[in-house]
Design a protein around this nucleic acid. Sequence first.
RNA 1: GCGCCCGUAGCUCAGCUGGAUAGAGCACCAGGCUUCGAACCUGGGGGUCGGAGGUUCGAAUCCUUCCGGGCGUACCA
Length: 559
Amino acid sequence: MASTTQNSALRGLHEALQAIVDELARAGDAAGTPRVELERPRDEAHGDFATNAALMLAPVVRRNPREVAQEIAERAGALPGVTSVDVAGPGFINLTMGDDWFLETVEAALDAGDRFGADVVANAAPILLEFVSANPTGPLVAASARHAAYGDALARILRHAGHDVTTEFYVNDAGRQVDLFGASILARATGSDVPEDGYQGDYVTELAAELGVAAGDDPVELGQRGVAAMIAGMRTSLEQLGIRFDTFFSEKSLHESGAVDRGIEHVAAAGYTDDEDGAVILRTTTWGDDRDRAIRRANGVPTYFAADIAYLEDKFSRVGAGGHLIYVLGADHHGYIARLKGASQALGHEVDTPEIVIMQMVTLSESGEQKKMSKRRGDFVTAAELVDRIGADATRFWMLERSHDQQLEIDLDAASAQGDENPVYYVQMMHARLCSIRRNVEAAGLADGDASAANEPLHASEKRVIKRLSELPIVVADAAERRVPHRVHHYARELATDVSKFYRDCRVMGDGIDPAITARRLRTADAARSVLALALSLVGVSAPEAMERREVEGGEADA
RNA sequence: GCGCCCGUAGCUCAGCUGGAUAGAGCACCAGGCUUCGAACCUGGGGGUCGGAGGUUCGAAUCCUUCCGGGCGUACCA
């Protein structure tokens, strides 16, 4: 059982409110019980937290919302940490918390350390998470960096939330495209024309030189060697981003092991296929696909989709009963959803698995102009170039700035800037500043003061930081359940902003500051530092203890 | 044609499992450094949440429809 320490005082409050509502729902003979929300009111005058519990419950028990609110409020007022409750508007319940509650929250965050908000999911099923899976016929492109940043952050968040996660990269090292790649390499090496639909980029020429290609080489074998080289390069690019996959899964291995043939037999034996002029067709329209799909051609060769079926079956066997599959696919793959889910059911699995997340496109712009990207023409920005230009932390931070179902445009001018335009440095700076405060307090020998002797109320800015800290477990749970790592990115920025205000209003040490206040504020600063570092780590961004001092621009200010 | 995603401030976008006066960053204007890091902070201007209907006590959020943009629609991989 997860301890309340890890789950924070806020989660405890949330659960207590839910319990009150559950009870009133039962008492009111309601069919179900609504899920109540606990949120931060926009206006701080409304209290520290607010809940829509009464507004949710009222319709279920067919009573007046304000009346229900009054009833909930009476009970909520008795909850630990709550100092006052009031009912406002149509039936909002506003809660104000006492200083003790805030101080406990700080201690809870410090006790939990990097396990704060961990193990928050109820059903921690094992998850096999596949992402990137870029075609190995070229280098990793900048767009793939979005998939990489998203998938890796999601894996980190899911693990923190309690899931056992395996990350996987599916390598399309089989089929016609690999042969075509080999033929393109050979053509580049020998100076002949690249085949139609072949790969044109300069990287192919470079690769040919690297591989020491000679005129008589076998294009098929060259294709395999080329793929191996591209995968090695992708691994390097991913590692520059701090991303390491648990497994690279070879499509070719499915063909070689006979798994593809077995998959075809499996769905055929289940009675879901038709023979069409010698080809084997899977009736995916049974499950909502807009057309049936060939899995074996008339010439006997299995299609790409047949390998997908075998891969799906292999994944199911590895993740085990109760396990869960997540595919992260590009927007240009949305047509796969129906057929993949169809294949899953043809194999006898449940409807809602595998889960497919569609990532929208990302584009890069510079000087107000969008950069074109075409892999065939070889005209693209690689992930490695992007990282060289703006750095790994900025790449990951920017790639996670937006929801995955939103198209994203990254302005390279802003992303490579060292100043205000670049929020990643703002967040890191706040972390460095908190580290600096601790260093200063330690140097002054004030780090071990008695915080409990502090006898003035907490400043609003200090309370605001602590409220934000208390929300991390909820943010993690939400980001994990809804597969939205950008929530954690935004959380980190909000926390950084709160830290900045705390820094402004609550000097930790200095002349005239009571040592007890110094001790208490240092606890808050330490907790904020710990949670900020944790949030950054969940999105794969580093939390430096110090940053290079930035020189004053120009210098003519004094002139 | 059909299918999926999107349309919120000048720009890039949060908010979308319905709730209080629609937010952030950037850009713009005006201020602020003798003390823990100014990569910062304070204030200001800027919105028919693409349009129109509907459901609801309440809609940026749900439904219908139209308009606009992206992507897809292979016995390619």
